[in-house]
Design a protein around this nucleic acid. Structure first.
Lengths: 345, 345
DNA sequence: TTTCCGGGTTCCACGGAAACG
DNA sequence: CCGTTTCCGTGGAACCCGGAA
């Protein structure tokens, strides 16, 4: 503060050492192994470091030790709140073990590969991905470098490790719920531009379960992920053109479901009497919109925590006993499907 | 693929060089200055590098060159879509100039400081922050290290550089709009837990402009940012307790405004006849909800682009001629305020 | 192509102080 | 009492990988 620090160039360990009247080694120890340095010395070094605004150069440390306290997370989107709790979980778990979480957005698989490249270039301690579908190139890279990597929001068959829940099981549970409340002509909305492959299991699961209930799984529509809310009206229109007697809609996200609710409002359709609507993800809007949305609650916070715990375990050298972790899900029944078929059945 | 690569240890420039039968320098040049290397050699090096899964060690490069191609962005939240376009703009601008954008979430000022610390530790080329309020410690650090830093979503008075729009001007424009459509008892909703300081300018601007219109700026309520949609109903209730004749509501975000619309639906209030509602941010929901929301559109994409352009300009050594850039805003008038006072006035 | 260098870490050597025979 | 061992805080040298000359 007193004198212009710009003249001295970048603040390095050496400069701190000189200013504190100790050797560079002592500065290093002060930060990395405080117990090795006498309290008085340590205090002085810390003080000088703070005054100079010294921050250890992570790049140099990484290079010298071959270790890193940074974990990279690749996220498909921040367009809606779907990943909010997930990221919170990752942040919290990382912070507890003294790791840093940095994010990169990747809305296509090509960008995902680029993000993985960047993180590996940074020599992060490990990374988390969303979904199980990746470019061959990315898989190859991950295999060859051997970075700890966790695939999230999926269950089973991991590249390295995985944490999440079964979308197929959740789809079946949701079909069961809709059938239980009296729906028969149930429509399915999926995503066409399937960025992360988190949706691919759902359609087959839907078709199978519908058949097991003796119902026809013919009302299916693929929406465009980029449409957001707008996908709802489009899907509803497409499915109505197939069969006006449709009485329920299973949507890929709460956003699409909300779009459907808005459209029902415009059409004057009562929900759930005319059409039961189910979402997915338990976003905040699900419990705020009228009527409240029935949805799949995926335990995103726990998933995020689990992912980071697994990465750290592997980065620390100890093999985590479970390379696949199931964080489960829950069908949250709300007004949008409540007794849907009560007067129609 | 053919043989187990784990035996060879980490893949380095040397190992690639040896495998390709060239010197390490040639490998370096192949990636950094491809034109300096003959095509045939370059091709072979690239091939070997790909086969070995070699990725240049950014830490080493950073250390050797003192430069970085990574820019850090601190984002307050991904709870809703407010920063989606902003981040897209940053990503696109960074990619165009061969930079990488990495994100860190910081929902409090303390976390913001920690994030800044991490990024400086990584020796990023520069960083972007949201808002103009930071901990003293953070300001001190930024000053001392001299990293290029852009404050965004604000206008004027920067630490180093700034890009955004004037919330005060937008507030005045929105008040003018509400008055123009016939509203007189206009309520204001702000945020109490003001994380990034992006909201502080609004209340004074509201009070002043209302007075200039000869209207009483007495209907003000501070909501909790953590409440999301739920803040809408709470705010409406609080303001109605002050004065039931309230005829318009200016909300801090489209989320809060949507919450108000949901509540109006529950109360059977017509929007905008009984209550005109204005949001802020032009989130996707604003144009999807019924009625569509009047809102402030902040040119977030351009703001993101501008931020990165400024960071890169400074990181490249050339002083950007404008250290403060105004990306403006627009009041988007939609049904939620359309002719609000037409039958009431 | 060679050489050196960047900033920090690992490993080990050094030297003073206290404890012991 | 003095020499020796032990302990512990500190400092020195080699090295991590890639870039510049």
């Amino acid at each position: 503060m007193t004198k212009c620090g710009d003249m001295t160039g970048p603040v390095t360990m050496q400069s701190v050492a000189k200013a504190a009247g100790v050797s560079p080694m002592t500065v290093s120890n002060t930060f990395k192994y405080p117990e090795r340095v006498q309290e008085e010395t340590r205090r002085r070094v810390r003080e000088v470091a703070a005054e100079l605004g010294y921050i250890p150069n992570h790049a140099a440390g990484n290079l010298a030790s071959g270790q890193s306290r940074v974990i990279g997370a690749v996220i498909p989107s921040i367009k809606n709140s779907s990943f909010y709790k997930y990221v919170r979980g990752m942040q919290d778990a990382a912070a507890e073990d003294g790791y840093e979480l940095v994010l990169k957005l990747a809305d296509t698989k090509r960008h995902e590969t680029a993000a993985i490249r960047t993180f590996i270039g940074l020599r992060v301690a490990g990374l988390t991905l969303v979904g199980k579908e990746h470019e061959d190139q990315a898989v190859d890279l991950l295999r060859k470098t051997g970075v700890p990597v966790v695939e999230t929001w999926v269950h089973g068959d991991p590249l390295d490790m995985a944490v999440g829940y079964s979308s197929a099981a959740a789809t079946r549970a949701m079909v069961d719920h809709l059938v239980a409340v009296g729906c028969r002509r149930i429509g399915f909305v999926g995503y066409a531009g399937d960025v992360a492959g988190r949706y691919t299991e759902r359609l087959p699961a839907f078709e199978q379960r519908m058949s097991e209930h003796g119902l026809a799984p013919d009302l299916c529509h693929l929406a465009d992920e980029a449409d957001g809310f707008g996908a709802g009206p489009k899907a509803l229109e497409a499915l109505c053109r197939m069969d006006m007697s449709i009485d329920a809609l299973l949507c890929p996200t709460d956003i699409v479901a909300a779009g459907v609710l808005f459209e029902c409002g415009r059409r004057g359709w009562k929900v759930p009497e005319r059409l039961a609507v189910a979402g997915w993800g338990d976003y905040e809007i699900a419990s705020e919109i009228s009527p409240q949305l029935t949805t799949v609650q995926p335990n995103a916070y726990e998933m995020g925590r689990g992912a980071i715990e697994m990465v750290i375990a592997r980065a620390s050298g100890l093999e985590p006993e479970d390379s696949v972790r199931n964080t489960g899900f829950e069908v949250v029944a709300r007004a949008s499907t409540d007794n849907a078929g009560s007067d129609a059945a």
